[in-house]
């Protein structure tokens, strides 16, 4: 009896002290919550409220009835999409464009960072670094505009130099190459930042030791630089895997012309056209939800996989 009563008292004291501790923490830490509040409010309105709005994918949304008032139609919108002529083409176009983009766009910045890191002349290195970041600051509209200008069949410099008059922006076979090449031009330099930061954090003693052991520059790259870059590369790959079904709608929309729709029609463009230009809100919400789910599953599985085989993972 005595022991039990003692325990009760103890437990009560424990609880009391816990409340006290929490209270004490809140007394000083409430200001942290205040500082976080504006950001949380933003995420609530622009990210979490729309999550609730996803239900229109399962309804026949009519503006007059609102999100919750429109008729429930179950999976009809999903069926409509997957049985339509466009579904296959859209998935293939989106996936192929992203895959090619990743195959070229992922290794190039790593290579550039490694080679830039080899510069002895610091002034030339700094200049090069500044220069290769510049295209990143050009807007997508201007980038597309440059393509239209340089590739114009009548006035464009490319056709003048080659003595041809190819309709680059109209021919489907040029779309993907132009899309990816212009992306590489704009962002490869910029994307070296992360890798350069990683390389600059390598302990110089490792290089010194390698030099004393007679390692050439090439050997140092292979045996020092690349192993140090692997974890960050894995992380970037995981992040990129999560957007293999995503769409760079901005750019595809700007580059799509009447001629190249068979390949430039990607999911994001289709959702924009059908959703906003033709007001098929429910139908396009269903498509958006599918893509989101695919991307989510993809990033989770790649993350799971890389945690299984290596040590690197996002979470």
């Amino acid at each position: 009896m005595d022991i039990q009563a003692d325990r009760k008292v103890n437990r009560r004291q424990d609880l009391n002290s816990m409340f006290k501790r929490v209270g004490l923490k809140l007394k000083t830490d409430w200001q942290i919550y205040v500082l976080l509040l504006p950001a949380l409010a933003f995420f609530f309105v622009f990210n979490y409220k729309p999550l609730y709005g996803i239900q229109i994918a399962f309804r026949n949304y009519k503006a007059a009835f609102g999100v919750t008032g429109s008729a429930w139609v179950g999976l009809k919108n999903f069926r409509d999409f997957f049985t339509s002529y466009y579904a296959g083409r859209l998935f293939i176009n989106t996936f192929v464009l992203n895959l090619y983009g990743l195959l070229w766009g992922f290794p190039l910045p790593v290579l550039l960072a490694i080679l830039l890191n080899q510069f002895r002349n610091q002034r030339f290195k700094a200049f090069t670094q500044t220069a290769i970041y510049v295209p990143h600051f050009i807007s997508t509209v201007v980038m597309a505009g440059m393509l239209y200008l340089f590739l114009s069949p009548t006035n464009g410099i490319i056709n003048h130099l080659m003595g041809t008059s190819t309709y680059f922006m109209l021919e489907p076979r040029w779309f993907r190459s132009l899309f990816i090449i212009s992306d590489l031009w704009q962002h490869s330099g910029w994307n070296t930042i992360l890798y350069l930061a990683t390389l600059s954090a390598i302990n110089p003693e490792i290089y010194e030791a390698a030099t004393i052991d007679g390692a050439t520059r090439l050997k140092k790259i292979l045996h020092v630089d690349i192993p140090h870059l692997l974890p960050i590369c894995t992380m970037m790959l995981i992040l990129n895997a999560g957007s293999l079904m995503g769409s760079n709608t901005d750019k595809a929309l700007l580059m799509s012309t009447s001629g190249n729709t068979p390949v430039s029609d990607i999911i994001g463009v289709y959702v924009y056209r059908m959703g906003l230009e033709k007001a098929q809100y429910s139908y396009t919400s269903a498509i958006g939800l599918c893509v989101n789910l695919i991307n989510f599953v993809m990033i989770m599985s790649v993350n799971w996989f890389s945690r299984r085989i290596g040590e690197t993972s996002l979470f």
Binding site: N47, P50, G53, G288, N292
Partner: peptide
């Protein structure tokens, strides 16, 4: 709550309708 928004969003149309309703 913050990091989750990086990986799952409402998508273009639900966001558009939510903001329009506001």
């Amino acid at each position: 709550l913050i990091v989750f928004t990086m990986f799952f969003t409402g998508g273009l149309i639900p966001t558009f309708i939510t903001l329009k309703d506001m």
